[in-house]
Simulated scan of single mutants.
Amino acid sequence: METNLEQIVLENSDEIVRMWLEEIQNTKTKEYTSAISEELFENTNREFVNVIFSSLEKRGGMNDIEEFAERLIHLGWPLSYLTDGMQSFRRVTINYILSQSTKVDTDYFSEVLAKVDEWVDPIINQLVDEYSGSWENIVSLQKVALQELSAPLIPVMENITIMPLIGTIDTERAKLIMENLLDGVIKHHSEVVLIDITGVPVVDTMVAHHIIQAAEAVRLIGSTCILVGIRPEIAQTIVNLGIDLSKFPTKSSLRKGFESALELTERQIVNLTEKQDEVESIIDSLGKE
């Protein structure tokens, strides 16, 4: 009975590679590879099978697999491409080894299966680990980025800042809003903060409670909070729920809120044309005198 199965595979690697490339080419019709050029797909397949044989020969081992997986991850290739490729390699290798034997009995068949599994399974596990670790890192970075964008505080003028809120507000996001709000008020020396809820689809008791808490916290550090963007349906909901928003100013639009913020900081919007006419009128009256 042939026992050196690894030697059989390595000595006939060219034929096994040919058979594997032929089989893996059939996956080109799948959704994740249909948009990839023939040249790139073929080059990637050849690199893939070289990495597999490198691990079998222990020349590069898992390091080559790790580097190859990292490149595919950065290029956006799915894990299914790699797992499909490894399963194809398993089938092709088993079939080839069995075809080279003059007699195949149960014991030999079991030996072949066990040996090929011994080669393939560690590679699949390594690929899955690489993808899992990479996606966990990407998701973590995206979560941080979304948190930073979910409650931005924008300084629009000296002592005036705006916090536009978009989307649903849950307890975790409300905590982030509170932290960003207080940090931003101190950082930008804000006297007035406009919380714009135009993009908040639903304002229920919990959301209103979080907003009231945020406004009260801003007041305690010496600033004024103005709630803007209260649409008619939101106003009706607030009234029906009996939510008391009387402790801080509210405006229907950001423009009206900004005008109020200017007044609170002892500024106002001036029409330059009217102001120029007024100055010219004063000059004319002085000239006549």
Rank of each mutant, 00 (worst) to 15 (best):
T106P: 13
I123S: 05
R255T: 01
R46Q: 07
T171Q: 10
V139F: 15
Q126D: 15
I166K: 08
R46I: 00
R90H: 09
E280K: 15
G85P: 01
E47S: 05
S13L: 04
M178A: 04
T168H: 08
H74F: 06
A261P: 12
L5N: 01
I195Y: 10
V200L: 09
T44F: 04
S260M: 13
D170I: 00
G257Q: 01
P249F: 10
S13Y: 09
E2H: 12
I52T: 00
Q268C: 14
L245Q: 11
E11C: 09
N271A: 12
L182W: 04
T250D: 06
D105F: 10
E263H: 14
P152C: 04
T250W: 03
L153F: 02
I169N: 03
R255A: 07
I97R: 10
I186R: 15
E42D: 10
E158A: 11
E31K: 08
V144T: 09
I230W: 00
H74D: 13
T237Y: 07
L194V: 01
E130K: 13
L220C: 11
S13N: 15
F248D: 03
T273A: 15
F109E: 02
I97A: 11
D284M: 06
L56G: 04
P152W: 07
P155T: 00
I195W: 13
A235P: 08
G222N: 08
Y108L: 15
I212V: 13
I283L: 15
T29Y: 12
I162Y: 02
A174F: 12
T168F: 07
S223Q: 07
I52L: 14
I24P: 00
F109S: 10
L227H: 12
P152S: 08
S110Y: 12
E2N: 13
S54V: 01
L149G: 07
F53M: 03
M157D: 04
E22P: 05
V120D: 04
G229T: 00
K275P: 07
I73E: 04
W77L: 03
K256A: 06
A261M: 05
E57Q: 15
L82G: 11
D196I: 02
L176F: 11
T106N: 15
K275F: 08
E136F: 13
R255I: 02
N63A: 15
C225H: 05
G85M: 01
I160M: 08
H188V: 02
P164C: 04
G184I: 01
M157P: 01
L82A: 06
N125G: 11
V112A: 05
E66F: 08
C225E: 02
E70G: 09
N63H: 10
W77M: 03
Y108C: 12
